[in-house]
Amino acid sequence: MTALVGDIGGTNARFALWRNQKIESVRVLPTVDYPRPEDAIRAYLQGTGQSVDALQAVCLACAGPVSGDEFAFTNNHWRLSRKAFCEDLGLSDLLLVNDFTAMALGMTRLREGELIEVCPGRSEPGAARLVIGPGTGLGVATLLPLPDGGWRALPGEGGHVCLPIGTSREAALWARLHDKFGHVNAEAILSGGGLLELYRTSCVLDGKQPSLATPAEVTAAALTGDAYASSVLEQFCVWLGRIAGDNVLTTGSRGGVYIAGGIVPRFVEFFIRSGFSQSFRDKGCMSRYFDEIPVWVVTADYPGLEGAGVALQQLLEGPSSGG
């Protein structure tokens, strides 16, 4: 079978061919460069010398809740109709999955050297695992082990839960964010744009003139010794710990936590030294619940694409084909 798999976020669309249960010919295309996903796929196929007619299946992992015929991407301008998409590309069917469903399934394909330990521990047999990752947005999914050795991913929109407050400083930041946005969700801070928002809001709170203009500048300044930028990045890590811990309590993910997405791998050493671990387990009477839960940062290049391939394979063969 020759299939096309895609992992489409707010900023980039990643495409690959899925053959013999492996991804090939990976390309990354900016979503802003194309009016529709169909146009990006045609450009990808042309660039890899493939014909649309050669495709036997397509699976797209998309940021946002997936249901029905129409799909609107959460963090970019694309919209998609399954029926129109198939008619345009001459396909019989299109498999759409949530992007973090694919990311979760991608965890079943990780290779040696693609995980960095943040919190040591021991995976509880048969327990769920949490997959969470800041990127253009904040993705969250749960990975469930099956009795036959396969895996099932449970999609969700955990990035849109309420941002928790654990200190008076966080309460003050939250109040500023609430004045600006109304509802303050986790993604408002735990994303690329959220890091910049956290920096700007912190500056307003502290009466400081902002001098950094992008998330990359905030991160770079923090890593090169800027004390204020470091404090902002530290708060980002602490808030990620609070949200990850809340999700573990909700889903019972004592099998472990994968920190995925494109942001945290850029500052892994800082992240390991940060207050993430403490805030992750800072749950009052339930703090001991976290004593043996391992946490890893995922450094694999294309786990979402791998997971889209696994989702397609599961559709054809059943959940036990997930790795």
Rank of each mutant, 00 (worst) to 15 (best):
G6W: 03
I8F: 06
A13F: 12
A13W: 10
R14K: 15
W18D: 01
R19D: 01
Q21V: 09
Q21W: 07
I23P: 02
I23F: 01
S25D: 07
R27Y: 00
V28C: 03
V28P: 05
A40S: 13
I41E: 08
R42A: 08
Y44G: 04
T48N: 05
L55T: 03
Q56S: 09
C59D: 01
A61V: 13
A63W: 08
E70Q: 14
N75Y: 14
N76H: 04
H77D: 03
W78A: 00
W78P: 11
R79C: 02
R79H: 13
L80G: 02
K83Q: 14
C86E: 06
E87S: 13
L89I: 11
G90Q: 06
L91F: 06
D93V: 05
L95I: 11
D99V: 14
D99R: 04
M103D: 01
G106Q: 05
M107D: 03
T108L: 01
R111F: 02
E112A: 14
I116N: 01
C119H: 13
P120T: 14
S123W: 07
S123M: 06
P125G: 08
A127I: 13
A128I: 07
A128T: 15
V140R: 06
A141W: 11
L144C: 12
P145W: 06
P147M: 00
P147G: 00
P147K: 12
D148N: 15
G150W: 04
L154S: 09
P155N: 05
G159A: 08
H160I: 04
V161Y: 09
T167P: 14
S168H: 11
S168T: 15
R169D: 00
A171I: 10
A172D: 14
A172N: 12
R176L: 15
K180Q: 14
E187F: 01
L190F: 02
S191T: 08
G193M: 08
G193W: 09
L195Y: 10
L196C: 02
T201Y: 12
T201E: 07
L205W: 10
L205E: 12
G207D: 09
K208A: 00
Q209C: 06
P210H: 10
S211C: 14
A221W: 11
G225Y: 09
D226E: 13
A229W: 07
A229I: 04
Q235P: 07
F236P: 08
W239Y: 05
L240R: 04
R242W: 05
V248P: 02
T250K: 07
T250I: 10
T250Y: 05
T251A: 00
G252M: 03
G252D: 02
G256P: 13
I259L: 12
G262F: 04
I263W: 05
F267V: 07
V268M: 03
S274M: 05
S277P: 12
S277V: 13
V295C: 11
W296N: 04
V297K: 11
V298M: 02
Y302M: 00
Y302Q: 03
P303F: 06
P303W: 05
G304D: 01
L305P: 04
A308G: 05
G309P: 03
L316V: 10
E317S: 15
E317A: 15
P319Y: 08
S320M: 10
